[in-house]
Design a protein around this nucleic acid. Structure first.
Lengths: 211, 211
DNA sequence: GTTGAAATTAGTACGAA
DNA sequence: TTCGTACTAATTTCAAC
């Protein structure tokens, strides 16, 4: 049910960000690393693993929560065991000027686990978890189709979830960190023919702001 | 880095499931509900909220972990605060008989937060978080393009993440629960014209098994 | 499956470096 | 700020019911 933070393409620390927040140093990052793989670790054990005192660990831990860098702690549930064996992605084309309504309707659908607004052919992608294939059909044809904001949908099923990391952090040693080489420099190296980048459809910028 | 459980389209409690697991009753579900919204709650407090004794709560808590219904506890990090302001989805077409290699390569890419095998036009969807737009380009053209298993990619950016629920549970009161009405009964009700379901490409079944 | 009491651990508050 | 310590409160474990 939680609205989560904006994530504009231009984002990533630029001016205009709401809330200055605290500067995250290496120790903060280490704390996040530990916490994302073991959200129930005691602060004492956390302090030891990170190499700071217990008191400091409490201070930093609280700071990270207060700042919002840690949004919440959660248990990862095996949805198959929990009876929701079917996962589907529904790509939605949303009618202009109706995003607000679309978002409101989404909040009323408990089977929706994730929704993101995207560039490309469609406007949004939603991920749903349900108990059987028929439920996906019901969801799409009865629930989504009845939302005026929804112009069209395209549904695919998830056959297997290969990988889910709790949360990716910069300290994971990305090859794609602020690269020395620019995009232009890179272009000669690899066969770009098979790669395709899909920008936002016309009018998307306008849609974005409307809510 | 964790491989997560299979999620076949036929799944959801059918025979052939690996590991019998324990039967999840209402109290188990309640525990999962509480834990997914507050992964750091003490077992004592959990017991109170669920309405059972401390000892029972401990027993059930442990059983859920041992069974794998609770896969892990994790902190949800604000990736923007953490310096990864850009999120993108990369839809990948994978060459037949090369899934194993594809999976292995994925594991080596820390910026990949999620990967699912899907039906439809593409074979897999991966979600990446990086610090800037250039990093996406680098990721796709340098890393993915160099994997022989990757036949083609299509990239879209995530402009906004509207909604993320920790984990959807059946008890969320889904409208799409084992529906009384069949898909066929439903068809007369709504304009199906704008809805599209996309099945697996030919040969996908074979690909699925290969790994 | 529950209660209660002991041992352990967590969380807080302080002064000192 | 961070650390170390001491103090208080809470949690977990384990026993008996």
């Amino acid at each position: 049910m939680s609205e989560i933070s904006r994530n504009g393409v231009g984002g990533g620390g630029q001016p205009g960000r709401i809330g200055i927040g605290l500067e995250l140093d290496d120790i903060h990052m280490k704390i996040l690393e530990v916490l994302r793989e073991n959200g129930r670790i005691s602060v004492a054990a956390l302090a030891e693993r990170v190499g700071i005192s217990r008191a400091s660990a409490y201070t930093r831990f609280e700071a990270l929560r207060a700042d919002g860098a840690i949004k919440r702690f959660t248990a990862e549930i095996d949805h198959v065991r929990a009876g929701l064996g079917i996962t589907a992605l529904i790509f939605v084309t949303v009618r202009q000027q109706m995003w607000k309504q679309f978002r409101a309707e989404l909040a009323r659908m408990p089977e929706v686990e994730y929704c993101a607004i995207t560039t490309g052919q469609h406007d949004a992608m939603i991920q749903v978890r349900v108990s059987d294939v028929a439920a996906v059909h019901t969801m799409v044809t009865e629930r989504l189709a009845n939302i005026p904001a929804v112009k069209a949908t395209e549904t695919v099923f998830i056959l297997d979830e290969v990988l889910r990391r709790p949360y990716v952090l910069p300290s994971d040693g990305q090859q794609s960190r602020p690269a020395r080489r620019t995009a232009q420099e890179t272009q000669g190296d690899v066969p770009l023919g098979k790669m395709r980048f899909v920008g936002a459809a016309e009018g998307r910028a306008a849609l974005q702001k409307e809510d």
